[in-house]
Simulated assay, not measured.
Amino acid sequence: MTVFDNPTTVPAPPPGRYSHVARIELGDKTMLVLSGQVAVDAEGRLVGENDMRAQAEFVMDTIEKILAAHGATLAHVVNIRTFLTDMDRIGEYGEARLPRFTGAPPTSTTVEVSRLFVPGALLEVEVTAVV
């Protein structure tokens, strides 16, 4: 069974466009597939203009809140996909990301893209977790 959800602990996506998370029941395991997250607050404003670290911290906080709403933590993340608008700034992103994964690191893909759907967004991150 698959349930799509938008936890109230994070800003809601635009109505009818997408869900923040798909919760997929797989016997005694649950897989959580999160939509890509960007640094946009509840009023739709970009957080941390031109500040990769601030945007990355906001995105990671949002991901943690979505996971928590489904009984998961970053320790349950098995894959992380990151889209950066400037690969030269990957170190700044890593400063926000790396301290949050204290166990075995998840599988990872990071690519550079020319732009994201929110003007000024420097990164978008999506994760898959298994609980």
Rank of each mutant, 00 (worst) to 15 (best):
V38C: 05
R81C: 11
V21W: 00
E57Q: 11
A72F: 01
T30R: 04
K65L: 14
M87L: 15
G103T: 04
S114R: 11
F101D: 06
R97S: 11
H70E: 15
D41L: 10
V130A: 05
T102H: 02
G71M: 02
L67Q: 02
T9E: 12
R45A: 11
L74Y: 03
M31K: 13
P119W: 06
F101M: 04
L67V: 02
F101E: 07
I80S: 13
A68V: 03
P14K: 11
K29V: 09
E43P: 00
T62G: 10
L122N: 05
G16W: 04
H76P: 00
M1E: 12
P106R: 04
T109K: 09
E92R: 05
G48K: 09
R53G: 06
I63T: 10
P13H: 07
V38M: 15
R97D: 08
V130D: 06
L26K: 08
L32I: 04
P15V: 04
A68I: 04
M31C: 10
L67C: 01
T102K: 13
V21P: 00
E92A: 15
A75T: 03
A42G: 12
P106W: 05
V10G: 07
A69Y: 04
D86V: 03
T128H: 00
A39S: 12
H20T: 03
R100L: 11
A121T: 09
G120C: 08
G71E: 01
T109W: 07
D41C: 09
I80Q: 12
